[in-house]
Structures are given as structure tokens and as C-alpha cells.
Simulated assay, not measured.
Amino acid sequence: MPKPIWMNRRSWVAAWVVLCAAGLAAAAGLNASSTPDPQPEKPVSAECAELIADVEAQVAEARKEDEGDGVLAFSRVRDGAGDDCRDALRDHFRGDR
């Protein structure tokens, strides 16, 4: 039976360092490639822009009053705008802008 090849301690440490560095490089590459491309901003109609400005004004007024733990609520139906602005409002007020 052939004799097994024994590695000294330095060789084991060097092999682990190389493997760890390769793993970190691969993980960094995968994380960088999985970042989604930013979506281009969609044009907003004049009615939706007016509605967004109105909502922002109400939010700013509520923050200025700052009466504690309050909730600011808006109705879903608005004359003239309808449901056309739902996506524009959601995109504008999403937290990641």
C-alpha cells in the first residue's frame, strides 16, 4: 500500500487561506451581479403630479403639527384622478427614494 502524503501545517494554512479568499471573491461577485438595475422613472400626468403635491403638503402640515403618535389617512377615491394615480403615488412615497 502506498504511503499517504503528509502536508505540514504551513501548507494546510496556506490552502485554507486560498480557499477562503476564493470564497469571498465569489460571494462578492455574486452579490454585485444580483443587484437589480434601477428602473427608469415613468412620466407622471399633470393630475397625478397635482395629487402628489397635495399629499406632500398634507404630510408636511401633519409633521409640522406633530401631535405625537398620529396616523395620517387618505381616502381612496378622489374626483378627477381616480385610480390612475395609484401607481404614481406608490412609487413616489415608497421609502427607497
Rank of each mutant, 00 (worst) to 15 (best):
P38E: 03
W12T: 09
D83I: 07
P40F: 01
C48L: 06
R63G: 08
A21I: 10
D54G: 04
I5E: 11
A60G: 03
I52G: 03
D83M: 09
F93K: 05
N8L: 06
E67D: 11
R94K: 11
R10G: 11
A27S: 09
S11C: 04
V17L: 15
A26W: 15
D54C: 04
P36N: 02
D69K: 08
L72Y: 14
R90S: 00
G68Y: 02
K42F: 00
A26R: 01
S34Q: 13
W16P: 01
R94D: 10
D96Q: 10
E65I: 03
A25H: 09
R97C: 09
E56R: 12
A26C: 07
S34Y: 07
A26G: 03
R63N: 15
M1N: 09
A53E: 13
H92I: 01
A53G: 06
A21K: 02
R76S: 12
L30P: 04
L72C: 07
D66N: 15
E47I: 14
C48F: 08
C85A: 05
L24P: 00
G80V: 00
V55H: 07
V44G: 09
L19Y: 11
D84M: 14
A57M: 07
D83F: 14
V55A: 03
E47W: 03
P4W: 05
A26D: 06
L89G: 02
G95Y: 10
S45H: 08
M7G: 04
I52L: 13
L19K: 04
G68W: 04
D79L: 14
G23A: 13
F74R: 00
E65Y: 02
C20A: 15
D91N: 15
D96M: 04
S34H: 11
R9E: 15
V18I: 11
D54A: 14
A53N: 08
L89V: 10
I52E: 01
G23F: 12
Q58L: 13
D37P: 09
G68M: 04
S34E: 14
L72A: 02
P38K: 07
E61S: 12
V17H: 01
P2D: 09
T35A: 14
V44T: 02
D83K: 05
A88P: 03
S33Q: 10
V18N: 05
K42A: 15
R76H: 00
G80T: 09
C48S: 06
E47S: 13
P36G: 08
K3T: 13
W16A: 15
L72N: 06
V71S: 12
L72I: 12
A15Y: 07
A60Q: 14
L72H: 13
W16T: 04
I5H: 05
S33I: 01
A46H: 09
A32M: 00
D69H: 06
V77D: 05
K64L: 14
V18G: 00
S34I: 12
Q39K: 15
R97M: 08
V13D: 06
R10S: 11
E56V: 00
W16K: 03
D37N: 10
L51G: 01
D96E: 13
A25E: 04
D87I: 01
A14R: 12
D83L: 12
L19F: 14
V18Y: 01
A28H: 06
C85W: 10
R86D: 08
A26I: 10
A15P: 02
G70Y: 14
R76I: 06
E67R: 08
S45C: 03
E65H: 03
S33G: 00
V13C: 02
F74Q: 01
A32F: 07
W16G: 06
D37E: 13
